[in-house]
Design a protein around this nucleic acid. Sequence first.
DNA 1: AAATGACCACATAGTCTCATTTGGTCAAAT
DNA 2: ATTTGACCAAATGAGACTATGTGGTCATTT
Lengths: 237, 237
Amino acid sequence: MVKVGRPPQDPARQLERAHRILDAAAELIERWGYDKTTIDDVARRAGVAKGTIYLHWKTRDELFAALLRRERAHMLEEVRERAPATLRDLVGELAAELVRRPLMQAVLLGDSEVLGKLTRRKRRGESGLDLGAAFEEYLGELRELGAVRADRTPPEQFAVLGAVIYGFLHTRDIMPEAMRTPDDRLVELIAETAGLALGTGTTPSGPASRAIGRATAGYLDTMVEIARHKLATSLGS
Amino acid sequence: MVKVGRPPQDPARQLERAHRILDAAAELIERWGYDKTTIDDVARRAGVAKGTIYLHWKTRDELFAALLRRERAHMLEEVRERAPATLRDLVGELAAELVRRPLMQAVLLGDSEVLGKLTRRKRRGESGLDLGAAFEEYLGELRELGAVRADRTPPEQFAVLGAVIYGFLHTRDIMPEAMRTPDDRLVELIAETAGLALGTGTTPSGPASRAIGRATAGYLDTMVEIARHKLATSLGS
DNA sequence: AAATGACCACATAGTCTCATTTGGTCAAAT
DNA sequence: ATTTGACCAAATGAGACTATGTGGTCATTT
């Protein structure tokens, strides 16, 4: 009884290859934009044949969806690792990640230079809605803990936060590079503005403070979990 | 000695005609956008011949520049009339005017649907810079009066304000109409956010309060003056 | 002098054709 | 069982030419 055919591959190697392909895609997209990045380019850069890419994803769009999901998952994981304990800090960490992640920024701002034809498709498709729902829930908790103003509904709070983050990031990349606020200062301004706009301005008591930290950690756990799950789906596991 | 030729026209009638032309242009631009609005359309709607328009402005672009300047002057006059006495109220009145003026909003947001090819030209050409300079001066005064936080430079304050206004207005017209915050509530949110983000949170004393009112009125006077002057230039006087 | 609208140069939109590129498949190689 | 790259249909782009529409002018009219 002799063995025939090639033995099955190590799934870990396959995953590693998927990530290598995504790395290649990320570099190319950041440099040339979605429209001008071809599957052949990606394959060449990743050191695999074109067909191999189609072993992982059925279409070009799915490849890029996976890329964006991975980016989001990494971003959220990074934020969670920094363990922000308040809304203000959470926003700060989020902003800090955003300014160093061109892809996430492009998605947030709907930058057609980078996203090309898929500019308007992914926007409210997923990030918008369930990210919004979970966040509003989190805001509700904070409100009961007296950590955010009670004179606005959670959807309004969410709108405020969205406007602040969106506004700062967009004006940033409209500005002539010369007179641009340095990134780290910008992040501070975003965090502080969000804190002032949403917070109550009072210092919470010890127990309340711990509860706030727990709520924030919980929110991040949820988000990371969702992001990871969606990523896993996109990597075909 | 007999009179020859046609008697000179009443300058007041000419001005009235210029405004009629601008009215026509405004309606058409708001409806069809800059690119799709032709001089012929404007002439027909205003009830004058095409050549007449060129008696007022040398090029199409100058006509539209005049239109935008008139709009801005009207907006600022309106705001001044409401006599806001604090930064918060100033922002509120400004926002209220913006949400009801599609053209100003288009300029602020760089809406290419409306502005077409001239999207990126007028932006930092004038509104951006000298509006910015005068505003930063005003912020400096408020700061010395203890009405705004001293932990940020005026350019930073300006950036914050820009981001807030920009962010709210942009997210507003991205949103599906259904789940949009009502305009009046949105204006409140903008004003309040700006107040919280820039203000010191303290209630100023009587004299300080009056000084703040005076500074605000002074700023508006300056802006109205500049706007009127530029408008006058654009109407060929 | 003031106003007009026929007129022109020119940019843009449309159409057709031909050459190249690209997403996706699959028989062959390992 | 995996991986590959030659292969194909379909999309995209380049080129050449025409039709249309538009900003701006100016001889003519009032």
